[in-house]
């Protein structure tokens, strides 16, 4: 039995099919990533599951039953954009939200986990971007949730703040909490998620554990070349040109052989990069376009 399951979700607006028959299941205790570019339908899908946006059709099951009041009591949600009440401090806001639930966590633990100790008396409006995200995560945890939704939690954060946030999410997951993460950062998904589903234009186009998805599709490594380093059309060499990124990629299991074949076609043999395939490559291959971030 899945902790959470979406069955045939559809959400249509006039002239737009935002979610197109989406189904997936999330096992207890894992971090599940819903990936895709902006506008792919991730947030709408997750908000239907959260119960804040009604679906045109389809059902959501929590612990085997239609998601209802028990789900609201046991779910923690961090929205992409949430305004808080003015003139309230961090501590007052946490207490207010905690009181809304019968199921309650120890606030001290949350405050420590989210590093909010020095911010408790600060007005909500005076938090920085990273502090605010930690605060919103803390609100999502006040009811000791069994499942936590994180919608684009690190958008707008600097690299250090993102990494700190990742550590925090990993700590929550280590406690056995199921996490549903939506993000358009493929590196974030790779670091945090046990399983992912990639969405584009309202549909799920691939799903599974990230490494399995990559291993199934990519045998070997990728040699990456700037387009302006290539003299000709690389005739006879299997390659992929990505115009909008300005690069040429060659997937190969034989790095020395491929380098030898490529060198005569390059202006500068040192201007190359060898790397493993990642989720960005997978997305590009599946959709034919890069992430519109």
């Amino acid at each position: 039995m899945y902790a959470l399951e979406a069955r045939n979700l559809v959400k249509s607006y006039p002239n737009v099919l935002a979610v197109d028959n989406v189904s997936f299941g999330v096992r207890e205790g894992i971090c599940f990533g819903l990936l895709g570019p902006n506008g792919a339908g991730k947030t709408t899908t997750v908000e239907i599951i959260e119960g804040v946006t009604p679906a045109t059709s389809g059902e959501v099951y929590y612990q085997g039953e239609i998601a209802g009041r028990r789900f609201r009591e046991e779910a923690g949600i961090q929205f992409q954009n949430t305004a808080l009440q003015d003139n309230l401090t961090v501590m007052e806001t946490l207490i207010m939200f905690q009181t809304l639930y019968d199921r309650q966590a120890h606030l001290d633990d949350i405050i420590e986990a989210c590093s909010l100790g020095e911010l408790l008396s600060r007005d909500n409006r005076k938090l920085s971007g990273g502090q605010r995200q930690r605060m919103l995560l803390a609100i999502a945890l006040v009811n000791k949730p069994r499942v936590v939704f994180l919608d684009e939690p690190t958008t707008g954060l600097d690299p250090q703040a993102r990494r700190n946030f990742w550590q925090l999410v990993q700590r929550i997951q280590n406690d056995g909490t199921t996490i549903i993460l939506t993000t358009h950062y493929m590196d974030e998904a790779h670091v945090l998620c046990d399983e992912i589903a990639i969405m584009d234009e309202g549909k799920i186009i691939a799903s599974g554990p990230p490494d399995e998805l990559l291993q199934e599709r990519y045998k070997g490594l990728i040699i990456e070349l700037p387009i302006d380093n290539v003299k000709d059309d690389l005739a006879g060499i299997d390659h992929q040109t990505i115009e909008d990124l300005g690069i040429v990629e060659v997937l190969t299991e034989d790095i020395p052989g491929s380098l030898a074949a490529l060198t005569p076609h390059l202006f500068d043999a040192n201007r190359i990069k060898i790397r493993q395939a990642n989720l960005e490559d997978l997305f590009l291959d599946l959709t034919g376009h890069s992430l519109r971030t």
């Binding site: 119960g51 009440q85 809304l100 639930y101």
Partner: peptide
């Protein structure tokens, strides 16, 4: 104002 800035939506995600 609460509805526009999403605070109501946040409350909706609680048992309220």
């Amino acid at each position: 104002r609460y509805r526009k800035n999403g605070f109501l939506k946040r409350l909706r995600a609680t048992p309220v």
